[in-house]
Every structure is written in structure tokens, then in C-alpha cells.
Amino acid sequence: MGMNVGSGSKSADPEPMIEMNMTPLIDVLLVLIIMLIITIPIQNHAVNLNMPAGTPPMQTTQPEVVTIDVAADGTIIWNGEVVPDRAQLEARLQGLAAMPDQPEVHLRPNKMVSYKSVAAVMASAQRLGVTKLGMVGNEQFIK
């Protein structure tokens, strides 16, 4: 049983190492990564809200509510009355937006109506300045 200790040549000079020792480099990189993780500030995923200050005024009367229904075929119904075209709907929405104390607008789409019809009503309301718009009857969409 023999063991080969040398490189096989009989020269006195050892051959230079060509490979770099990676262990110290990896240690330094791990320390730098740990320092980076520690010094990064914590990111807060928060939404800033402008909340009113003070006590709210006491409201003794119920707010006026306008109900806009969108039927399955795209027909728009304003408080039980059919609105024949988009121009008349926008005229009514513009009248609401001009009021100093806007009434609440409750939008109730039918479950079978296309999204395009509901989105058109919402876009008209937003464009004309209606600020109190809410979706009503969302429980029908829960499966």
C-alpha cells in the first residue's frame, strides 16, 4: 500500500495554487447580507386617510337617497322611473352634483347585467361630480 505525496515530477519548487479560497469571501458576503437586512427600515403598508377632526354635527333628518337600478338588459331605472337615454341620465346626475348637499346615490345592478352598463353609469356619475355614490345589493354576487 503506497501513497503518492508529490506531483510526480522531481522538481524542488511546489506548483502554485490556481484556485482561489472561497471560504473567507463567502463569510464576508454573509456578514454583509446580515448587516443589510438589519439596517433596512421596516416598510409599512398603510394607507393614509384624512379623517375629520372634532365632533360630528348631530343630524336629525335622514339623508335623501336616490336609487339607480340597472336591469339585466341594461335599462336604467331612476327611483322606479325608466330613464330612456344616457343624456337624460347625465342631466339628472348633473342636477344632483349641483346641489350644495348632495343626496346619496345607491346603485343597484342586476346580477345578470353586463359590467359595461354599470361602469358607464359609475363613470358618468364620477365625471359629473357626484361624490356620494355607493353600491347596494352586493350580497347577490356572493356564491
Results as ranks from 00 to 15, higher is better:
G6H: 05
L89V: 01
M20K: 10
E81Y: 02
V66C: 09
D101Y: 10
L30W: 00
I68V: 15
A72L: 09
Q88K: 14
L30F: 04
Q140F: 00
F141M: 03
T67M: 15
D13L: 13
K116S: 11
P109S: 02
Q140Y: 03
F141E: 04
D13S: 13
M35S: 08
K111I: 11
A125V: 07
P41T: 06
A46D: 15
S7P: 09
P24D: 05
V66K: 09
V66Q: 00
I76G: 00
M3N: 07
I77P: 05
P63E: 09
G95L: 06
T60V: 13
G134F: 09
S9A: 14
E64F: 05
L133W: 00
M122D: 03
M22H: 07
N79L: 04
A72Y: 03
A53R: 07
I142H: 02
M1E: 10
I34S: 12
G74N: 09
D101F: 10
G80R: 08
L32I: 13
L36T: 06
A12F: 13
L133V: 09
G2V: 00
G74R: 04
L32P: 01
Q88T: 15
W78I: 07
L128R: 02
R127P: 02
E139D: 14
Q43T: 07
V105N: 01
E81K: 12
V118T: 13
Q140I: 12
M20P: 02
R86W: 12
L32N: 08
N4I: 08
K116D: 09
G129K: 04
V82I: 15
R108N: 09
L30I: 09
I42T: 10
M58K: 10
D13M: 11
V121A: 01
A97Q: 02
V70Y: 02
A123T: 06
A97L: 05
V31E: 08
G80A: 08
V82E: 14
N48K: 13
K116G: 08
Q102Y: 03
P56W: 00
T23D: 06
L25D: 05
V136F: 13
L29P: 00
M35H: 00
F141C: 03
H45E: 12
L96Y: 03
I34H: 00
V66E: 08
Q59I: 14
S11F: 10
L36E: 02
P103T: 05
A98M: 08
P100F: 04
M99F: 04
L25M: 12
S11R: 15
I77N: 06
D69T: 15
A72G: 13
V113M: 02
Q126D: 13
T131S: 14
P100H: 07
L29D: 06
A98K: 07
D101Q: 15
V121E: 03
K10G: 07
W78F: 15
A120M: 08
A71T: 07
L89M: 14
T67Q: 07
R86C: 02
P109V: 01
P57R: 08
R127Q: 10
A46H: 13
I142W: 05
G80N: 09
T75F: 00
G129N: 06
M135N: 04
V121S: 05
G54L: 09
